[in-house]
Design a binder for these strands. Sequence first.
DNA 1: GCATATTTGTCCGTATGTATA
DNA 2: CTATACATACGGACAAATATG
Lengths: 215, 215
Amino acid sequence: MTEPLPLADRVAKDIRDLLITGALAPGQRLSEAAFSERLDISRNSLREAFRLLTKDGLLRHEANRGVFVSVPSTDSIIDIYRVRRMLECGALRQAWPKHPAVAVMRGAVEHARKQHDLADWREVGSANMKFHAAVVDLSDSSRLSDFYARVAAELRLSFGLLKDPEQLHSPFVDMNAQILELVEKGEVVEAASQMELYLNLSERTVLKALERIAR
Amino acid sequence: MTEPLPLADRVAKDIRDLLITGALAPGQRLSEAAFSERLDISRNSLREAFRLLTKDGLLRHEANRGVFVSVPSTDSIIDIYRVRRMLECGALRQAWPKHPAVAVMRGAVEHARKQHDLADWREVGSANMKFHAAVVDLSDSSRLSDFYARVAAELRLSFGLLKDPEQLHSPFVDMNAQILELVEKGEVVEAASQMELYLNLSERTVLKALERIAR
DNA sequence: GCATATTTGTCCGTATGTATA
DNA sequence: CTATACATACGGACAAATATG
C-alpha cells in the first residue's frame, strides 16, 4: 500500500533531492547508462524521469548530447526574482490575516529564529524558503503554489553554488518576521512593499555572490 | 537539419494540438497501444510524451489505469482565473507603454476586430488569447510567459466543451481595446483594474456555461 | 465471486545516427 | 579521419494490476 506512485515520479523526486542538496553539480552531464545503473532502473524509466525534471528547469536537454544539470545564469536569477516579486507581492496584497497559511508563516519564522541561535544555517535556509512558499499559498491557488515550488527549486540550485549560506539567509529572518507582523495586523499593502524590498535585497545578494564565483 | 527536437517533444506538441482543437474529448482514455500505433511511434516514446503533457495539466495519470484527457472542473476554472488575475493584472500594473509587447497587443486587437466582422469566431478567440499572452509578456519573464501558456492551454480545454464561442469571446474584444488604450496612455493602474473586471466577467461566463452543460 | 482477457509498468536487446577523442 | 562512445528510438518480453464476462 506504500507504492502508489509510478517509478518515474519517484525517481524524479530522488534526483530532485540530489540536485537541491548539491550532490550533483551544475553543468554536470548525466549519462543515461551510468545513472540508470546507479539507481538500478531501466534507461526507459530514467528517460521518463528526465523529461519531468527538464520541464521543471532543473535539467537541460541537448539534442543527441544528453541531459545536463542546469547552470544558473545571471539571466535566470533575474527572471526568477521577477517571478517571485509577481507571486509573493501579489499574494500579500490580497492576503487575509486569518488565512491558514499565516500560521505556517509564523511557524517558519519561529523555527528560523531557533535554528539561527543554534547556528544551523542549512535549517535557517529551509525555514526561510518555507516561509515564502507559505506566502504564495495565501493566493489559494494550487497552480500558483506548484509553479512557485518549481521556481524555488531552480533557485536553490543557484544557492548550492554559493558557500557561506549564513550571509545568504541570516539577515533575512528579521525581515520575514516584520512582514508576518504586517500581515497579522491586516496591513497587507505595507507587507507587499516590504516584501519587494526584501526581494530586491536578496536578488542583489545572490547576484553579487554569483558574480564573485564567476571571477 | 530540420529535426532538432526529440521525438517525445514533437509528439507532445501534436497531441497538445489535438487537445486544444477538441479532437480528443475530456475524460477520454488514451490507450498506450492504440495511440502509439496511430501515431506510428513506440510505446516508450509515447510514454515520454505523456509525462510532458501530464506536467502541463492537460492529461491525468492514474496509477495502473493509464492516462486520460483532463476534465475541466469548476475548481480548476476558479484556480486558473486566480492565476490569470495575478499574472495579467500584475503585468499591467508595472507595464511600460513602449514595450514591444504593446505592439503585439494592438495587432491582436485589430485582428480580432477584423475577424469579428467576418464572423469567424474561432479566429476571434485565438486573437483574444494572443492579446492576453502579450499582456503577460509585458513582465519580461520567460518563466511567467511559459507558465501562462501552459495555463491558457488548460483553459482552452474547457472552452472546447462549450458551444457557441461567439458568446464566449465576442463581447470581450472591445474591453481588450480599452485596456490597450489605457496602457498606451500610460494609465497602467487603470488598465489593471479594467483587466480585473474583464477577468471576473469572463470567469462568470465560463462557469455559467459549464454549469449549464453539467445539468 | 471467479476466471480470463486486457492494459499498464518495467525491463532488455539492438539498430542507427550523432558527437567527440 | 577513423574509431569509439553515447543518445535515440524501436520492438519484444513478462509480471502485476485492472477490467471484463
